[in-house]
């Protein structure tokens, strides 16, 4: 564990907590894309299948349970909790996210490390996570400005994988084994997709106004 990876995990945890805070306390999911949340639930479900077969550390298992639990509970809140569901922007959140799932699955079947069930699904989860934010970014552009909590949620979610890239660089130079190039590329694509959001975030958000 190095400082970059710990910072990345904490940033990721913070993004999930910010979203849960928003949904649970003010019972609102305005500006949040349910489709992105559904994609993230699939990402964690397919990435953490090894939670039962391989034990890495208490921290690792604990964080996996947190991410699994939070992503599914956010989807549940947005779908079935009456008060929260009412604030969901169904008309605007129309990105065909199932069109993202199939190409990622095909790509994982074609390009992977090892052709085993767990490995292909793990690779699929990497590809899917790289594009999972798209419905949220599209919703963002449609709803124009968003509230601070949603802006911070997206900022933290985008930042965590950027910190992971620093972690991969650090591990490359300091450890005998390497991180697979598929992980590198998926992580880079994912972080680059946030580029224009980061641009507006710093321009507007730091300037004291909401993100537009």
């Amino acid at each position: 564990m190095n400082i970059f990876r710990l910072a990345g995990d904490m940033t990721h945890l913070a993004s999930v907590l910010v979203l849960l805070l928003k949904i649970h306390t003010i019972k609102s999911c305005a500006g949040v894309s349910l489709r992105t949340q559904e994609l993230y639930a699939i990402v964690f479900a397919t990435r953490y299948l090894d939670i039962f077969t391989s034990f890495v550390s208490v921290y690792n298992t604990f964080m996996k349970l947190v991410f699994l639990g939070s992503s599914f509970s956010i989807v549940w809140y947005m779908r079935y909790h009456k008060a929260v569901h009412r604030t969901y922007d169904r008309e605007q959140d129309t990105f065909r996210h199932w069109f993202l799932v199939l190409p990622c699955l095909v790509l994982a079947l074609l390009i992977h490390e090892k052709f085993t069930f767990l490995e292909v699904l793990w690779t699929f989860s990497l590809y899917l996570e790289a594009v999972a934010i798209l419905p949220q970014l599209v919703l963002l552009q449609r709803t124009r400005n968003i509230d601070n909590l949603t802006g911070q949620y997206i900022f933290l979610l985008g930042g965590y994988r950027g910190l992971y890239i620093l972690n991969w660089i650090y591990r490359y130079f300091t450890e005998p084994h390497f991180v697979h190039w598929i992980t590198w590329i998926a992580g880079l694509v994912q972080t680059l997709l946030y580029a224009d959001f980061f641009y507006y975030y710093f321009l507007r958000f730091i300037g004291g106004r909401g993100v537009e």
Binding site: S54, P176, V179
Partner: peptide, 10 residues
């Protein structure tokens, strides 16, 4: 030659 890739990340 680096060893096999790691799988200890989230």
């Amino acid at each position: 030659e680096k060893e096999t890739p790691i799988k200890d990340e989230l």
